[in-house]
Write a protein that binds this DNA or RNA. Structure first.
Lengths: 106, 106
DNA sequence: TATTTTGTTCGCAAAATTACGAACAATTTC
DNA sequence: GAAATTGTTCGTAATTTTGCGAACAAAATA
């Protein structure tokens, strides 16, 4: 019934990615994973100052946002960046902040 | 007492910006403001499908995150992007997603 | 001075987030 | 088969977020 504009799909997608990145632990996880092919839960946990149950929860949120993916490789679970969505996020943020200016340093 | 690494200032700053951007209404507000010099509360409210009290709250959060600033110009209040922090955010996100590749289209 | 306009703040409610330890499941190793 | 390793899920608690209407404050206007 509202006459007001609704949010666009892009706005919602960008908000979803942003929200997933809205916690330092999740930023740290993403940066950690972005540096390597993949990594097991334990290595990620080691890097973070929080309990494993909490790490597991953060990983779940990142997975649900589509930024990472996990794969069971007994006895471990390997996590890695979801490259496709990572590229999408990168593009959405770039667009959001204004296109890449590639400014010269001088 | 923890042996675990703590989060870096950059990680926390990026998380703070991300969190502020973690809601479609706030994305919409930022995009709206990014397109113009400044804008009063009313114009922003008109664009959004939510009550003014809620809009005011979202603006407050964006202000606290440093992404926008408000100035009273009786009888209106003008909001605008905080250019300095906007540039900082842009840089942090760019760094996060990997430096600008400026890929050729072909 | 009374009224209107413009936004903010208050008080409340519902839902989501963050965090942890304990319990659990699956697999591997002893 | 028993024990150890690796993560997830459960249950709980504290805090934050989201949203709204009503009340409020400040300035402009009638």
């Amino acid at each position: 019934m509202s006459e007001k504009k609704d949010y666009t799909t892009k706005q919602e997608q960008l908000a979803r990615f942003s929200k997933a990145m809205g916690h330092p632990a999740r930023i740290a996880i993403l940066q950690f994973l972005a540096k390597r092919e993949d990594c097991c839960f334990g290595c990620i946990h080691e890097e973070l100052p929080i309990a494993k149950a909490t790490v597991s929860q953060h990983l779940k949120e990142l997975k649900e946002a589509g930024l990472i993916q996990g794969e069971v490789e007994p006895p471990k679970v390997k996590y890695c960046i979801n490259r496709e969505n990572w590229a999408l996020a990168k593009e959405l943020f770039r667009e959001f902040f204004g296109d890449c200016t590639c400014k010269k340093e001088h």
